[in-house]
Design a protein around this nucleic acid. Structure first.
Lengths: 110, 110
DNA sequence: TTATCATATGAACAATCGTTCATATGAGGT
DNA sequence: ACCTCATATGAACGATTGTTCATATGATAA
């Protein structure tokens, strides 16, 4: 299999690679961006904080579907929420969100 | 459902949102990053171009599994390949790859 | 040609995922 | 108390996904 001509360099590559745990965390983060519903939610939150039913209206989806996805986004610490009476407002929790999406947009617009 | 107090602003948010097709493409791109095997492959390709079996050795995975994932990465135009005799070398096709992963790393290291 | 090495690929499998539906919780208002 | 609105959540469903296994292709050497 391996020719072992570059064995030294290979070991070096291996050494510089982050722990499996870190890489798993990284891929989990990206898979949160890997759904168009969640991308749409993040996109409307770029503009301002918004309630669950408002997001559902805007995206023409059920409140349940949005609520499930908000849970995923919050679990990934991409959004936070605050309660005001009966309604819960969600908002972006992190500045990285925008730059990650921007990088992705740059890639596909080529 | 909708209070329609902010109806005007909502329409504006909607107008500024990219087409469904674009958002689908964007989420598909991110879902390619959403697997730790593919992240690992990209990581070793940061160092230099590499053959299929070499990557498989490095990651302790079967040649078949790696080959399948390389296909996904190539389909997303994140990597390219060149043939040299029997072996095929894969390499990064895009500078955005590194910056996207870097942004992700920044987010999880908080 | 035949043998071997490197890679690609199709089918099958379990596992994960996103939505829907029904229902539960939580917070005012009457 | 009751009713209603806003949100959350668990179960179930079909759909997608990553790996394995077996096999096919492609390239070189004898």
């Amino acid at each position: 299999m391996e020719h072992n001509k570059h064995g030294e360099l290979l070991k070096e590559v291996k050494r510089e690679m982050p722990k499996d745990e870190t890489l798993a965390e990284l891929s989990e983060l990206f898979s949160v961006f890997g759904d168009s519903t969640r991308i749409k939610i993040l996109w409307v939150l770029f503009e301002r904080e918004m309630s669950v039913c408002c997001i559902a209206d805007l995206l023409n989806m059920t409140q349940s579907a949005i609520s499930h996805q908000l849970k995923n986004l919050r679990h990934a610490k991409l959004i936070s929420s605050r309660r005001e009476g009966k309604t819960v407002y969600y908002f972006l929790a992190d500045d990285h969100v925008r730059s990650i999406i921007d990088q992705g947009m740059e890639h596909i617009s080529e």
